[in-house]
Simulated scan of single mutants.
Amino acid sequence: MRRVLLLGGTGDALAIARSLPAAHVYSLAGLGRVPGDLACAVRVGGFGGVDGLVRYLCDEDIALVVDATHPYAAQMSRHAREACTIARVTLWAVRRPAWQPQPGDDWRDTADWRGIVERIAGFHRPLFTLGREPLAHLHEIPALQHWTIRCLDAHPGNERADIIDARGPFDLAGERALFDAARIDVIVSKNSGGRATEAKLAVARERGLPVVMLTRPALPDADRSFDDAVSARDALQHWLTTQ
């Protein structure tokens, strides 16, 4: 049987995974909760670089890889492109469009952690929605700042940081309540795109708060790309019926 390997971890990937029959594989990096309602196999953990992924594709008779990883998981996307080229396996990708600034937005782009630190230097109560990266810098928080960090897994904070483990989607009411409770005066965000976590940007716009936006990494081309999970899922269902 010609099998599918779905590379995921995002809500887009999960929506596709729920349509996969038992013979196919949904692969997670291991940072989030493993869904319990899937018919397909679930694999957790890395492959061991490009060579390990090539071996997996060959050993498991994978005929199609669908890259539905996070837009900032650039290394995994590069590895998938290289491994599929070597193994002569078709690669599809879900490339979620980036958010675009709207009238009233105050976005301040930066490419790395150093730039983030520089851009929040004049603020007191930043909200970080970058995932795990800020957790490595808890000991560096300036005395005049208190950080609120939202990520997928629980982690102890300290006297100058609160950690919120939460997974979207987030709505306007909930985001407004968070901004009020934590007295947020600046947001630090990845440009993830999609609707699940977009409400924070609307609240920032309402309140005239700046958003320090981490620019997206460049991603490799795929043999076929989709803007959303629905289009990818429908194309995949057609592919499965023709094999």
Rank of each mutant, 00 (worst) to 15 (best):
A39L: 10
W113Y: 08
P126E: 07
R81H: 10
L91Y: 05
T85E: 14
M76H: 04
I116D: 13
L135P: 08
A41S: 10
L53A: 04
H137N: 04
Q145H: 09
R43T: 09
L53G: 08
S77C: 07
L38E: 03
A143S: 15
I86C: 07
V50F: 08
R81C: 06
R78D: 04
W113M: 07
F128D: 03
Y56I: 01
Q145M: 09
L144K: 14
V50G: 01
W99T: 03
F123W: 07
T90S: 15
T69E: 09
H146S: 13
V117R: 11
P142V: 10
H79S: 14
V42G: 04
G104N: 03
D109R: 11
D109F: 12
F47T: 00
P71A: 06
H79A: 13
H146P: 00
H139S: 14
C84D: 08
G48N: 06
V44G: 03
D67L: 01
G115K: 05
W92H: 07
A41K: 10
V50C: 14
I120P: 01
W99V: 06
T148R: 04
W107C: 11
A98Y: 11
P101Q: 10
D109E: 13
L138C: 11
R96C: 07
R108T: 09
L144F: 09
I62C: 02
R150K: 11
P101D: 13
A39E: 14
L130N: 00
T85H: 09
I116E: 12
A73Y: 02
D37Y: 03
R43Y: 07
T129Q: 05
R125W: 07
E82M: 12
F123A: 00
W107T: 10
A121E: 15
A111E: 07
A136G: 14
E140C: 13
R125T: 05
A74I: 06
G104I: 01
A80P: 05
H124Q: 15
A121D: 14
A121T: 13
E140F: 03
V44R: 09
R150P: 03
A68K: 03
D106G: 06
I149C: 08
R78E: 09
G49S: 11
Q145K: 10
W99S: 11
R119E: 13
R96N: 04
W147T: 05
G45A: 00
T90F: 02
R119Q: 14
Q102F: 03
D105T: 12
W92D: 07
D37R: 03
Y72G: 05
T129C: 10
V65A: 07
F128A: 02
R88M: 12
F128N: 00
Y72H: 10
T129H: 02
E82C: 12
P97D: 13
A93T: 01
I120E: 04
D51W: 01
Q75M: 11
S77K: 02
A87C: 13
H139C: 05
L144T: 14
Q145F: 09
D59M: 01
A41Q: 14
I141D: 12
H137F: 12
A63S: 15
D106M: 14
H70A: 00
R119W: 00
G104F: 05
H70G: 01
R95V: 15
V50T: 15
G46M: 11
C58P: 00
G131W: 05
L64E: 01
H137W: 12
R132D: 10
W92G: 07
